[in-house]
Amino acid sequence: MTAHGTHGTPAPDGPDDSSLCVLSTADLADIVITPAEVIAVVEQAYRALADGRSDNPRKLKSEPGDGHSVAYAMLGRDGARQIVAVKTSYKHGLREERERQHYYTTLTLYDDVTGLPLAMMDCGRIGALRTPAAAALLARELAAPGARTALVIGTGTQGRLALPFLLTAVPGLERLLLYGTRPDGVRAVREQLRTHFPDRDAEVLDGLGALDAAAGDADVVLAAAGPHTPAAVTADRLRPGALSVLTGHGLAPSALHRADRVVATSAAQMRVTGTDMADGSGTLRAADAEFPEVLAGRAAGRTGAGQRVFAYNSGLVVTDIALGHRFAQLALDRGLGTRVPLWR
């Protein structure tokens, strides 16, 4: 199958074919892509946004009063790749254990050169890769000079890939610490690490006391746990110069409110999705800078080696678009997917 929408490649049924290629979880599962390539794609998306070539409107959120589910919708345009896309995300059973929850996320791509649909895909793997890539970029740009110790909190989808991405972006890390409550998750983290870095392993922390002590040793603390984690590292546990990156859960609100500097991938999205980090009065501290502007050199990230920096890592749809487009290219080049004449 030859894909339309890859800029100059002919459509399978002619130049005006508007059929939609659906790429399933199975279609995308065997696509090989390295952490370094993912990081490069995500960085390009941030830089295009900072340059004004891309659009990343504030995400929409809907949830019932009892909080049993949450849904998001995100529209954006990647100006570097000239792709327009819509992402949807729906999670049900938020009060349940992970095994009882339902989660569905899709990404639909349109080629803004040809005006034709490119693909609709399961966005699970895209999100699982772009989030640790963004966290790794935050660590690369915001960690104190000479950072040597990293602590990852959480062993779910994001935690399992955090260490390979961190080591790719910050190769000087010497000591890797891991906190998780699920033995299978801990094993999965260590297996992922050895897959990409066969000679490296993580020190597994036993209990919250060990976590608090380790937080005081860490130059980079990446909180990627799920909402049911007992971990909540407070500001007074963080050493001077520490960078804390919030991707999921595992940091107390004080880590944000008492930071010397706050950087968000998007200040607008932080106001939407970061409400659980509000202080006792319900106030959410504002960001001092946005990360795309930091990457572009138009805003300061860390301004002193001894600063405690807090980074809020909310997913930007432009990064999903860029990585999703790359996956679509790789999948369609292999003839994967099912073409659906949706608009006929």
Rank of each mutant, 00 (worst) to 15 (best):
T114C: 05
T114W: 12
G115N: 01
G115M: 01
L118G: 01
A119C: 05
A119T: 08
M121T: 07
M121I: 09
D122I: 07
D122T: 08
R125L: 06
R125I: 00
I126W: 04
G127C: 13
A128I: 04
R130K: 15
T131P: 05
T131H: 11
P132H: 14
A134V: 09
A135Q: 08
A136T: 07
L137D: 00
L137S: 03
L137K: 13
L138C: 06
A139F: 04
A139E: 00
R140C: 02
E141K: 13
E141W: 13
L142H: 05
A143G: 02
A143N: 02
A143P: 00
A144D: 02
A144I: 03
A144C: 10
A144E: 04
P145L: 05
G146H: 08
G146W: 09
A147H: 09
R148D: 01
A150K: 04
A150S: 04
L151W: 05
L151V: 03
V152C: 12
V152G: 04
V152H: 09
I153K: 11
I153T: 06
I153A: 11
G154L: 12
G156N: 13
G156F: 13
T157L: 15
Q158E: 13
G159C: 12
G159P: 10
G159K: 12
R160G: 15
L161W: 15
L163N: 02
L163T: 04
L163V: 03
L167Q: 12
T168I: 02
A169G: 08
A169L: 14
V170D: 00
V170Q: 06
V170S: 10
P171S: 14
G172K: 08
L173K: 08
E174I: 01
R175L: 01
R175Q: 05
L176K: 06
L176D: 01
